[in-house]
Protein backbone atom coordinates (compact mmCIF):
# COMPACT_ATOMS: atom_id res chain seq x y z
CA UNK A 1 0.00 0.00 0.00
CA UNK A 2 3.02 2.19 -0.19
CA UNK A 3 4.14 4.34 -3.03
CA UNK A 4 7.08 6.64 -2.93
CA UNK A 5 5.80 10.02 -3.85
CA UNK A 6 7.60 11.76 -6.62
CA UNK A 7 6.55 13.83 -9.55
CA UNK A 8 6.53 11.89 -12.74
CA UNK A 9 9.93 11.97 -14.31
CA UNK A 10 10.12 10.39 -17.68
CA UNK A 11 13.67 9.93 -18.69
CA UNK A 12 14.72 11.93 -21.67
CA UNK A 13 11.51 11.41 -23.56
CA UNK A 14 10.80 14.20 -25.96
CA UNK A 15 7.12 13.45 -26.27
CA UNK A 16 4.32 15.61 -27.33
CA UNK A 17 2.65 15.92 -23.94
CA UNK A 18 -0.79 17.33 -24.47
CA UNK A 19 -1.55 17.48 -20.74
CA UNK A 20 1.40 18.61 -18.70
CA UNK A 21 2.61 16.23 -16.04
CA UNK A 22 0.69 13.25 -17.39
CA UNK A 23 1.64 10.50 -19.78
CA UNK A 24 0.07 10.19 -23.23
CA UNK A 25 -3.51 8.97 -22.66
CA UNK A 26 -3.12 9.55 -18.89
CA UNK A 27 -2.21 5.98 -17.88
CA UNK A 28 1.40 5.17 -17.11
CA UNK A 29 3.09 2.65 -19.39
CA UNK A 30 3.08 -0.24 -16.94
CA UNK A 31 -0.67 0.10 -16.45
CA UNK A 32 -1.15 0.15 -20.21
CA UNK A 33 0.98 -2.99 -20.52
CA UNK A 34 -1.09 -4.75 -17.88
CA UNK A 35 -4.34 -3.81 -19.66
CA UNK A 36 -2.88 -4.70 -23.05
CA UNK A 37 -1.94 -8.17 -21.80
CA UNK A 38 -5.52 -8.57 -20.60
CA UNK A 39 -6.95 -7.40 -23.92
CA UNK A 40 -4.95 -9.99 -25.86
CA UNK A 41 -6.33 -12.74 -23.61
CA UNK A 42 -9.82 -11.30 -24.01
CA UNK A 43 -9.54 -11.47 -27.79
CA UNK A 44 -8.16 -15.02 -27.64
CA UNK A 45 -11.07 -16.24 -25.50
CA UNK A 46 -14.12 -14.40 -26.90
CA UNK A 47 -16.71 -13.53 -24.26
CA UNK A 48 -14.57 -14.61 -21.29
CA UNK A 49 -14.13 -12.01 -18.54
CA UNK A 50 -10.44 -11.37 -17.91
CA UNK A 51 -9.70 -9.93 -14.45
CA UNK A 52 -7.42 -6.90 -14.49
CA UNK A 53 -6.13 -4.48 -11.87
CA UNK A 54 -8.42 -1.61 -12.81
CA UNK A 55 -7.02 1.76 -11.85
CA UNK A 56 -8.64 4.76 -10.32
CA UNK A 57 -9.29 7.14 -13.12
CA UNK A 58 -9.92 10.85 -12.77
CA UNK A 59 -13.63 10.25 -13.23
CA UNK A 60 -15.90 8.15 -11.03
CA UNK A 61 -16.32 4.40 -11.30
CA UNK A 62 -19.59 3.68 -13.04
CA UNK A 63 -19.08 6.62 -15.38
CA UNK A 64 -17.03 4.82 -17.99
CA UNK A 65 -13.68 4.17 -16.32
CA UNK A 66 -13.46 0.66 -17.79
CA UNK A 67 -14.03 1.85 -21.32
CA UNK A 68 -11.69 4.77 -20.71
CA UNK A 69 -8.89 2.50 -19.54
CA UNK A 70 -9.36 0.30 -22.60
CA UNK A 71 -9.37 3.27 -24.95
CA UNK A 72 -6.32 4.75 -23.21
CA UNK A 73 -4.41 1.49 -23.67
CA UNK A 74 -5.32 1.17 -27.33
CA UNK A 75 -5.30 4.73 -28.65
CA UNK A 76 -2.41 6.23 -30.64
CA UNK A 77 -1.65 9.57 -32.22
CA UNK A 78 -3.11 8.56 -35.58
CA UNK A 79 -6.49 7.51 -34.21
CA UNK A 80 -9.70 9.44 -34.64
CA UNK A 81 -11.95 9.14 -31.62
CA UNK A 82 -15.72 9.30 -31.30
CA UNK A 83 -17.44 9.10 -27.92
CA UNK A 84 -21.18 8.51 -27.49
CA UNK A 85 -23.49 8.09 -24.56
CA UNK A 86 -27.11 7.04 -25.21
CA UNK A 87 -26.19 7.16 -28.90
CA UNK A 88 -25.39 10.86 -28.80
CA UNK A 89 -22.07 12.71 -29.00
CA UNK A 90 -23.44 15.63 -27.09
CA UNK A 91 -24.63 14.10 -23.81
CA UNK A 92 -22.65 15.50 -20.90
CA UNK A 93 -20.71 12.36 -20.09
CA UNK A 94 -19.77 11.79 -23.73
CA UNK A 95 -18.54 15.38 -23.89
CA UNK A 96 -16.56 14.91 -20.72
CA UNK A 97 -14.85 11.71 -21.90
CA UNK A 98 -14.13 13.11 -25.36
CA UNK A 99 -12.53 16.16 -23.75
CA UNK A 100 -10.47 13.96 -21.48
CA UNK A 101 -8.92 12.18 -24.44
CA UNK A 102 -8.57 15.34 -26.48
CA UNK A 103 -6.55 16.90 -23.66
CA UNK A 104 -4.51 13.82 -22.67
CA UNK A 105 -3.72 12.56 -26.19
CA UNK A 106 -4.28 15.43 -28.59
CA UNK A 107 -5.89 13.00 -31.07
CA UNK A 108 -8.47 14.13 -33.55
CA UNK A 109 -12.05 13.64 -32.39
CA UNK A 110 -15.15 13.35 -34.51
CA UNK A 111 -18.88 12.93 -34.19
CA UNK A 112 -19.13 11.04 -37.49
CA UNK A 113 -19.22 7.28 -37.04
CA UNK A 114 -17.66 6.62 -40.44
CA UNK A 115 -14.63 8.85 -39.70
CA UNK A 116 -13.73 7.29 -36.35
CA UNK A 117 -11.11 4.58 -35.84
CA UNK A 118 -12.06 4.13 -32.18
CA UNK A 119 -15.60 4.61 -30.90
CA UNK A 120 -16.17 4.56 -27.17
CA UNK A 121 -19.78 3.97 -26.28
CA UNK A 122 -22.17 3.74 -23.41
CA UNK A 123 -25.52 2.01 -24.00
CA UNK A 124 -25.64 2.02 -27.83
CA UNK A 125 -24.07 0.63 -30.97
CA UNK A 126 -24.06 3.20 -33.77
CA UNK A 127 -26.62 2.74 -36.54
CA UNK A 128 -23.97 3.20 -39.24
CA UNK A 129 -22.45 -0.25 -39.97
CA UNK A 130 -18.93 -0.59 -38.54
CA UNK A 131 -15.87 -1.61 -40.57
CA UNK A 132 -12.76 -3.75 -40.13
CA UNK A 133 -10.76 -0.58 -39.52
CA UNK A 134 -12.74 0.34 -36.43
CA UNK A 135 -12.63 -0.64 -32.77
CA UNK A 136 -15.76 -0.29 -30.66
CA UNK A 137 -15.07 0.16 -26.93
CA UNK A 138 -17.98 -0.45 -24.58
CA UNK A 139 -18.34 0.95 -21.08
CA UNK A 140 -19.64 -1.85 -18.89
CA UNK A 141 -21.18 -1.40 -15.44
CA UNK A 142 -21.85 -5.06 -14.54
CA UNK A 143 -19.97 -7.54 -16.72
CA UNK A 144 -21.41 -10.70 -15.21
CA UNK A 145 -24.55 -11.81 -17.06
CA UNK A 146 -25.36 -14.32 -14.33
CA UNK A 147 -25.02 -11.82 -11.49
CA UNK A 148 -28.77 -11.26 -10.96
CA UNK A 149 -29.25 -14.98 -10.73
CA UNK A 150 -26.23 -15.71 -8.55
CA UNK A 151 -24.67 -12.90 -6.51
CA UNK A 152 -21.38 -14.63 -5.73
CA UNK A 153 -18.47 -14.13 -8.10
CA UNK A 154 -16.91 -17.37 -6.89
CA UNK A 155 -20.02 -19.27 -8.00
CA UNK A 156 -20.54 -17.53 -11.33
CA UNK A 157 -16.92 -18.12 -12.29
CA UNK A 158 -17.40 -21.83 -11.67
CA UNK A 159 -20.61 -21.84 -13.71
CA UNK A 160 -18.78 -20.27 -16.66
CA UNK A 161 -15.93 -22.77 -16.31
CA UNK A 162 -18.35 -25.69 -16.37
CA UNK A 163 -20.43 -24.07 -19.12
CA UNK A 164 -23.32 -24.59 -16.74
CA UNK A 165 -25.92 -22.12 -17.94
CA UNK A 166 -29.08 -23.80 -16.72
CA UNK A 167 -29.82 -20.84 -14.41
CA UNK A 168 -30.16 -18.54 -17.38
CA UNK A 169 -32.50 -20.92 -19.19
CA UNK A 170 -34.63 -21.13 -16.08
CA UNK A 171 -34.81 -17.34 -15.87
CA UNK A 172 -35.89 -17.06 -19.51
CA UNK A 173 -38.42 -19.87 -19.04
CA UNK A 174 -39.88 -18.17 -15.98
CA UNK A 175 -40.18 -14.90 -17.91
CA UNK A 176 -42.17 -16.66 -20.57
CA UNK A 177 -44.40 -18.38 -18.02
CA UNK A 178 -45.07 -15.15 -16.22
CA UNK A 179 -45.20 -12.60 -19.03
CA UNK A 180 -45.58 -14.64 -22.18
CA UNK A 181 -42.34 -13.07 -23.43
CA UNK A 182 -38.67 -12.76 -22.52
CA UNK A 183 -38.75 -9.76 -20.23
CA UNK A 184 -35.32 -8.31 -20.88
CA UNK A 185 -35.19 -5.06 -22.77
CA UNK A 186 -31.53 -4.12 -22.44
CA UNK A 187 -28.31 -5.84 -21.41
CA UNK A 188 -29.88 -8.87 -23.07
CA UNK A 189 -27.40 -11.75 -22.66
CA UNK A 190 -25.67 -13.28 -25.66
CA UNK A 191 -23.69 -16.41 -26.33
CA UNK A 192 -20.34 -15.70 -27.95
CA UNK A 193 -18.71 -18.15 -30.36
CA UNK A 194 -20.98 -20.89 -29.00
CA UNK A 195 -19.24 -20.86 -25.62
CA UNK A 196 -19.45 -18.06 -23.06
CA UNK A 197 -22.63 -16.27 -22.09
CA UNK A 198 -21.77 -12.59 -22.06
CA UNK A 199 -23.32 -9.30 -21.07
CA UNK A 200 -23.43 -6.98 -24.09
CA UNK A 201 -23.46 -4.07 -21.59
CA UNK A 202 -26.73 -2.14 -21.18
CA UNK A 203 -27.37 -1.63 -24.88
CA UNK A 204 -31.02 -2.03 -25.88
CA UNK A 205 -31.70 -5.46 -27.30
CA UNK A 206 -32.35 -3.59 -30.56
CA UNK A 207 -28.57 -3.40 -30.92
CA UNK A 208 -27.77 -7.04 -30.17
CA UNK A 209 -27.89 -8.25 -33.79
CA UNK A 210 -25.24 -5.68 -34.73
CA UNK A 211 -22.69 -7.60 -32.66
CA UNK A 212 -23.05 -10.79 -34.68
CA UNK A 213 -20.30 -11.23 -37.31
CA UNK A 214 -19.43 -7.53 -36.89
CA UNK A 215 -16.35 -6.60 -38.97
CA UNK A 216 -15.06 -4.33 -36.17
CA UNK A 217 -13.22 -5.49 -33.06
CA UNK A 218 -15.42 -5.04 -29.97
CA UNK A 219 -13.70 -4.45 -26.63
CA UNK A 220 -15.46 -4.23 -23.28
CA UNK A 221 -14.11 -2.60 -20.12
CA UNK A 222 -15.68 -2.79 -16.65
CA UNK A 223 -13.56 -0.53 -14.45
CA UNK A 224 -15.13 -0.94 -11.04
CA UNK A 225 -15.65 -4.67 -11.47
CA UNK A 226 -12.16 -4.90 -12.99
CA UNK A 227 -12.97 -7.08 -15.99
CA UNK A 228 -12.09 -6.95 -19.67
CA UNK A 229 -13.69 -8.93 -22.45
CA UNK A 230 -13.88 -8.90 -26.21
CA UNK A 231 -15.58 -10.07 -29.34
CA UNK A 232 -13.15 -10.43 -32.25
CA UNK A 233 -14.36 -9.41 -35.70
CA UNK A 234 -16.50 -11.95 -37.55
CA UNK A 235 -17.56 -13.86 -34.48
CA UNK A 236 -20.91 -15.49 -33.84
CA UNK A 237 -22.94 -13.64 -31.24
CA UNK A 238 -26.34 -15.13 -30.52
CA UNK A 239 -28.97 -13.56 -28.29
CA UNK A 240 -30.37 -16.20 -25.95
CA UNK A 241 -33.86 -17.43 -26.68
CA UNK A 242 -36.05 -20.51 -27.06
CA UNK A 243 -37.07 -21.94 -30.40
CA UNK A 244 -40.75 -21.16 -29.86
CA UNK A 245 -39.96 -17.78 -28.30
CA UNK A 246 -37.36 -16.37 -30.66
CA UNK A 247 -35.36 -13.26 -29.85
CA UNK A 248 -36.89 -10.08 -31.25
CA UNK A 249 -35.72 -6.50 -31.40
CA UNK A 250 -37.80 -3.49 -30.42
CA UNK A 251 -39.76 -1.74 -33.13
CA UNK A 252 -41.81 1.43 -33.26
CA UNK A 253 -45.02 2.19 -35.05
CA UNK A 254 -43.86 5.60 -36.14
CA UNK A 255 -40.71 6.90 -37.82
CA UNK A 256 -38.17 9.34 -36.35
CA UNK A 257 -39.91 12.71 -36.14
CA UNK A 258 -36.77 14.51 -37.26
CA UNK A 259 -35.33 12.44 -40.12
CA UNK A 260 -38.12 9.98 -40.92
CA UNK A 261 -35.94 6.89 -40.39
CA UNK A 262 -37.99 3.74 -39.81
CA UNK A 263 -35.34 1.26 -38.73
CA UNK A 264 -33.37 3.05 -36.04
CA UNK A 265 -33.61 3.02 -32.27
CA UNK A 266 -35.87 5.85 -31.13
CA UNK A 267 -35.89 7.92 -27.96
CA UNK A 268 -39.22 8.97 -26.61
CA UNK A 269 -39.38 12.70 -26.00
CA UNK A 270 -42.03 13.98 -23.65
CA UNK A 271 -43.64 17.16 -24.92
CA UNK A 272 -46.00 18.06 -22.11
CA UNK A 273 -47.41 16.61 -18.93
CA UNK A 274 -50.54 15.14 -20.53
CA UNK A 275 -48.62 12.31 -22.18
CA UNK A 276 -47.94 13.92 -25.56
CA UNK A 277 -44.71 12.61 -26.94
CA UNK A 278 -42.64 12.19 -30.07
CA UNK A 279 -39.98 9.73 -31.13
CA UNK A 280 -36.55 10.71 -32.45
CA UNK A 281 -33.37 8.80 -33.36
CA UNK A 282 -31.14 8.03 -30.40
CA UNK A 283 -28.08 8.03 -32.70
CA UNK A 284 -27.68 11.76 -33.23
CA UNK A 285 -25.00 11.40 -35.90
CA UNK A 286 -27.05 8.96 -38.00
CA UNK A 287 -30.07 11.22 -37.66
CA UNK A 288 -28.16 14.32 -38.75
CA UNK A 289 -26.70 12.45 -41.72
CA UNK A 290 -30.13 11.27 -42.70
CA UNK A 291 -31.46 14.77 -42.60
CA UNK A 292 -28.50 16.12 -44.58
CA UNK A 293 -29.07 13.47 -47.22
CA UNK A 294 -32.64 14.65 -47.58
CA UNK A 295 -31.55 18.26 -47.85
CA UNK A 296 -33.01 19.15 -44.48
CA UNK A 297 -31.19 21.94 -42.70
CA UNK A 298 -29.17 21.18 -39.63
CA UNK A 299 -30.74 22.74 -36.58
CA UNK A 300 -28.84 23.36 -33.44
CA UNK A 301 -29.12 25.30 -30.26
CA UNK A 302 -26.64 27.78 -29.14
Amino acid sequence: MLTLQQDSLRSGEKEKMPLEGYNFAYLDESTKRMIRRGLLKAVAVPGYQVPFAGREMPMPCGWGTGGIQVTASVIGEEDVLKVIDQGSDDTTNAVSIRRFFASTTGVKTTTHTAEATIIQTRHRIPEHPLTEQQILVYQVPLPEPLRWLEPSEKETRTLHALEEYGLMNVKIYEDIMRHGAIAMSFDYPVRVNGRYIMSPSPIPRFDNPKMHQCPALQLFGAGREKRLYAIPPYTDVKSLDFEDYPFEVQHWDEPCALCGARHTYLDEVVLDDTGKRMFVCSDSDACAENRARQGMTEVSHD
Binding site: E13, E15, F24, E29, K32, S73, V74, G76
Partner: peptide, 11 residues
Protein backbone atom coordinates in the same frame (compact mmCIF):
# COMPACT_ATOMS: atom_id res chain seq x y z
CA UNK B 1 10.08 6.58 -28.38
CA UNK B 2 8.68 4.01 -25.95
CA UNK B 3 5.20 5.47 -25.55
CA UNK B 4 4.46 5.78 -29.24
CA UNK B 5 6.22 2.69 -30.52
CA UNK B 6 4.91 0.30 -27.90
CA UNK B 7 1.41 1.58 -28.68
CA UNK B 8 1.98 0.90 -32.38
CA UNK B 9 3.48 -2.51 -31.71
CA UNK B 10 0.57 -3.36 -29.42
CA UNK B 11 -1.92 -2.41 -32.11
Amino acid sequence: NPVRQSQQAFR
